[in-house]
Design a protein around this nucleic acid. Sequence first.
DNA 1: GTTCGAAAAGTGGTCTGACCACTCATGTCT
DNA 2: AGACATGAGTGGTCAGACCACTTTTCGAAC
Lengths: 214, 214
Amino acid sequence: MQNTKPTSKMFLDIVGELRLMIKAEGIEVGDKLPSERVLAERLQVGRSTVREALRSLELLGLIETRRGEGTFLADFKKHQLVEVLSPFIMQQTGSAKDARDTRIIHEKAAIQSICSDSRKQKLPVWKSLLMKLAEEGSVLREDIVREMIVATDNRLSLKIWFLLKQYSRVPYGKMTEVKENQIVSTLLEQLIEGHVFEALNAYERWIEEIEGEE
Amino acid sequence: MQNTKPTSKMFLDIVGELRLMIKAEGIEVGDKLPSERVLAERLQVGRSTVREALRSLELLGLIETRRGEGTFLADFKKHQLVEVLSPFIMQQTGSAKDARDTRIIHEKAAIQSICSDSRKQKLPVWKSLLMKLAEEGSVLREDIVREMIVATDNRLSLKIWFLLKQYSRVPYGKMTEVKENQIVSTLLEQLIEGHVFEALNAYERWIEEIEGEE
DNA sequence: GTTCGAAAAGTGGTCTGACCACTCATGTCT
DNA sequence: AGACATGAGTGGTCAGACCACTTTTCGAAC
């Protein structure tokens, strides 16, 4: 019986078994896993126990289940891990200031990353944003920042930033002030030139301009 | 009936409900959650459904379950999450790099924050670390970096860093090379002096020394 | 023979009820 | 007062039963 393992968590064993099975049978991303009923019989456990393990893996984004079809090995790129974890982390951490500071950390890191990128592959993005800013006189703040993070090609950072953005309700709307337009133009120009210090300087002035009293 | 929600995943809703409940009832880390049977009745779902959600959260390390006692809100120190996820993450090329890059983002941000702190309240920490390094000839790498993040007084950043640290299998153990000791000494000295550029420079050399070929 | 549609099989989603093993508080007996 | 037995409460697991959905099968109509 499985009752001889009082200490270990059954469903954790199942998770391990599944991992071994995936490897042993050469199941690739997108392939179908054995059905819950088959797994239960093969592993000699109840179906509900199998389900607890599968639901855990699903929450992690390791598998994908489609009713009526089956369970499939998922592309881990799409993990909603950060989404699930963040509410708890934010709740236990609690500080709005931390959320803001951390968001800024990622935004600054993006600027530094962009300026250090010798290949300058993302140049067209900044130039088009700069042009749009000059023509229309206004751009969504969020678009600019998001493009910066996207440009770093770090999905994890992007996810974290996206979530933090929601926790620190920043006026990410349209820009109205002429002064702000000038600052952002400077920021973009420095990004294009790859001048880290100047770009960061412009960014900090921008933050100051937006959030003002802090 | 709950059957009117064919699209959404029931157990994901439960996860959300639990989060709300935790917040509403002010459940702190270490506190006991309602029993599975109570939760099932209160949320008007079957016990097995509740369990699927709870097992998921347990795998994430957000809750801790003790047979015969109950379910408790955990401070995810027990991260079996990592053991489960690491094999999958390492397979997906992009994920591991993102985790490492993001971790370094937070570490660098900590250095910048410390150097910019005009009050220099954390000076004693660096001095004691520096002394310990000189006396014992070796310190745990992790201790140094952790102290840096702690010094920023940003608990959210600390939590994120802590999670990321586990995924990037970095030799966070003891330092052995004399050269590394010198680099870290330099880093600490520059932290004390508040020289951002020099500190970051030392940090980058450190990373290079540790991780070598990259 | 081909095509179309209904039935069947397979699968995940959920609920119920039943045990088991364990912990803890309660109360009883010595 | 202390030691021990008991019962309530809780998580762990299982079996069986539906439901909703998708895919396959297969036979009837053309």
